[in-house]
Design a protein around this nucleic acid. Sequence first.
RNA 1: GGCAGGUUGCCCGAGCGGCCAAUGGGAGCGGACUGUAAAUCCGUCGGCUUAUGCCUUCGAAGGUUCGAAUCCUUCACCUGCCA
Length: 424
Amino acid sequence: MSADMHVLDDLQWRGLVAHSTDLDALRAEMDDHPVRFYVGFDPTAPSLHMGNLLQILTARRLQEAGHVPYALVGGATGMIGDPKNSGERALNDLDVVKAWVERVRGQIEPFLSFEGSNAATMVNNYDWTASLSTIDFLRDIGKHFPVNRMLARDVVRSRLEAGISYTEFSYVLLQSMDYLNLHRDHGVTLQTGGSDQWGNITGGVELIRRVEGARVHALATPLVTRADGTKYGKTEGGALWLDPEMLSPYAFFQFWLNVEDEKVGELLRAFTFLSHEEIEALDAQTSEKPFLRAGQRALAEHVTALVHGAEETARIMAASTALFGGGALRDLDVDTLAAALREAGSVEVERADGLPAVVDLMVASGLSRSRSEARRTVAEGGAYLNNVRVRDPELSPTESDLLAGSWLVLRRGKKNLAGVEVLR
RNA sequence: GGCAGGUUGCCCGAGCGGCCAAUGGGAGCGGACUGUAAAUCCGUCGGCUUAUGCCUUCGAAGGUUCGAAUCCUUCACCUGCCA
């Protein structure tokens, strides 16, 4: 971060401001005193993902600039679900939502500082929503929401054909109420979020103006999309989860390493704390010597370190070098090989009468979901044993194939690797 | 409430009694080219101890038939028109 640059200018440079209310007014307020701001996360899954990470990092940038974060976990809004274009959400049970609230909270906390004069605060909107009576809600909040305005919102309009429940239709009231409460009780005057939340965010801005007569601010980051505009953050395991149980740190690292050239500069800006100079130097390398993938390497290293820690990242990078470095697998010593394969993902297999056939190993290691799929992969020439293409699906590795006495390296396609440790 | 139309594999969408595990497109996966990019081209794309075999699938449950995604009945949901 360039220390002497205004945080709003930094955010803009990083491409993080897609929508905003009056930026000059916000800047004036920031220059006058630390601004209390909030960003909300709904527990709609057991883990946060890439899109949420962008919000967390943006909050951290603001905190590093001296402002005061309120991280809201939506124990209440998570019970309702915000409307999305693809259709009505399934409601989750209270117990499930409560468990997810705790997990989400735990994922956010490491990114913020809870000490000092601008310490962060965690809040849960369940606290002020659960006991609210319907009558009070309709009189105090509902009265300020013209239905014609609510109907005009993009998400709602797109759902009118297919149908939208009153529950989801009402979501905006809850999020707006959150902003109002945080404004009243904590003096919060800025809400940040993804651009898909813009409607919900401005709902709060408007509610506060109507009820309190105060002018508060809003900032929305752009949605992270691929170069062709489609959704980002998809891996074979589904979304780009932050939870290491749901997506291995190795797979997380690989995702960033494989980002297209066209997007790497944008992602470096949005997801790392590298300085403008460092990022511009990486941009230059990407355009001059794209094959070096300097931008991707830096991106993968920095983001993985932010989420999974520097030590884990170092192990992953060592594993990547060992497995993708181009060197012969046989030349690796046992410890390096075993560590690399455990990082990349591995299974243990019992030795019966000889070793299992390649198709079975593919299934056992999770590289293929069924024997049919494994056979298909072999037929397509996409299966490799110790980096040698396998042609016969029924082939069983022999003792002499074992690396370091007990390891096999299976690969599907270019990038999907798994280790098999053969036990006595 | 009445009438009409719809519900097909991950998504969109053909099929309208046997040749249907089901045309086509997209996504996904593999190969070639490269740089563990992108684009392009080719292939593949329900499962099973790979099998001129078996099992499961065309909203759900029954029925007709030698044989059903295709016909009939009931139910559920969606859309449109009329009240």
